[in-house]
Nucleic acid binder design. Sequence first.
RNA 1: GACCCUAUGGUCUAGCGGUUAGGACACCACCCUUUCACGGUGGUAGCACGGGUUCGAUUCCCGUUAGGGUCGCCA
Length: 448
Amino acid sequence: MKIRVRFAPSPTGFLHIGGARTALFNWLYARHHEGTFILRIEDTDAARNTAEAVNVVLNSLRWLGLVWDEGPLTADATGSFKGDCGPYFQSQRRKDYERRVEALLSRGLAYESEGAIKFKMRREPVVIDDLVVGQVRRELTDREMQDPDFVLVRSDGQPVFHLCNVVDDLDMGVTHVIRGEDHLSNTAKHIALFQAFEVPPPRYAHIPLILNQDGSKMSKRDAGASLTPYMDEGYVPEAILNYLCLLGWSPKDNRELMPLDEIVERFDLPQVLRHNARFDMEKLKWMNYEYSRTLSPDRFHELAVHALARAGIDTNSFPLPYVKAALDTCVGKVKLFSDLPAYAGFYFNPDPAIDPAAAQKDFVPENRPRLARLREAFAALTAFDPDTIGNTLAATARELGVKTGVLVHPTRLACTGRTVGPSLYHLLAVLGKERVLQRLDQAIARIG
RNA sequence: GACCCUAUGGUCUAGCGGUUAGGACACCACCCUUUCACGGUGGUAGCACGGGUUCGAUUCCCGUUAGGGUCGCCA
């Protein structure tokens, strides 16, 4: 049997991090079993669904690299799509739902009530054989004891989620439904509907939810809940995927940093955990760092330039080799690309602001002649590479009878304005003799 | 209120009757070092509680508690 899974988001204007993980699990399952990954847009709540909102979903999935085998090609509900089961927007499948409702009506399995059409739900408990949770016997709640029937079509003619979801899964030949555990209780309704349509339901796999750090439910407003900020702040998509796959799934052998290929190879439902996981931004950052430091130079450069541009630093006005050399000194030094403007801004700002606290410590009178001496030693240099710079600084320190650190700190501050940054000798070499001399002069004048 | 799921350090997790309870993030100390970061070494910290079953429970069963989910003419 060829496996067919789907990710069926409702376009709300953002992709929830939990939704991203649901998409990932479906995608991984499809890839692992060489099945088909379907993207279906559940836009039945017409009023609040816009093309822009759909675009957010499409772009987010594309950014993550979760390519769908079937589904829309554009955010336009009436636009083109790939796959044989389209259209993949629920708003375009009204006739299918109506036909199914007619069938139910004619067989006495649904009835009209106050303008709406309701499904005659069975009064007995439903057994759900879940691939993750195991066998669940879903008893009726006290409210359902009174009236277990539920609405299929609203009085305004709009079909509701439970109906659309089931009909689409049926018509699209979905074999496995991998979704958040928040749907587990509803699954009884879905199974009853499949039975009413006289077809076996798909296999269900309800995956645990992602909670906030404090254990509360993660909603759209919570920090980190939407994927968009990660895209904006220059996170590495592979890092997000790697982190997300470890929330609720475990390879069982302590492996954490894993290339996507390995995850695809190893991912399967039996290793999916049953308990909810809390979202840990710190660990995500660490993992993102691990990925960003091993990025190809071109990828690193691209993400770095993007981050700088977002902070208003236009690297285009500098020679490309200079920009590349500058960025090379930052590899492995910052956790987030969004830290880069503060970290490497001095390369692109002719007059970087000096950290006042550091100035108080390093720009003291006794350092004035020392910096002046170093400035002259640098001025006399014909080569200006890291080794030469380092040797010259060390030699000057010896002449002065001080440790190298005594020169290192004020020099760094003079040239970058900060106490932290890339390797000093490399940074000075990139900056070039002219800029270095100029900034040293400014610092010396400032001390005076 | 009813129903469903869950419970190993602060967080993600390994464990599937007998372990000095392992790994990772975070944190602390030390080392390395031109700052920071990396790296290295060491450390703090955990089986929610109460009953069973068993020679023996983190592990199996029941209960309690706690957290999460669902019971919509939202999805």
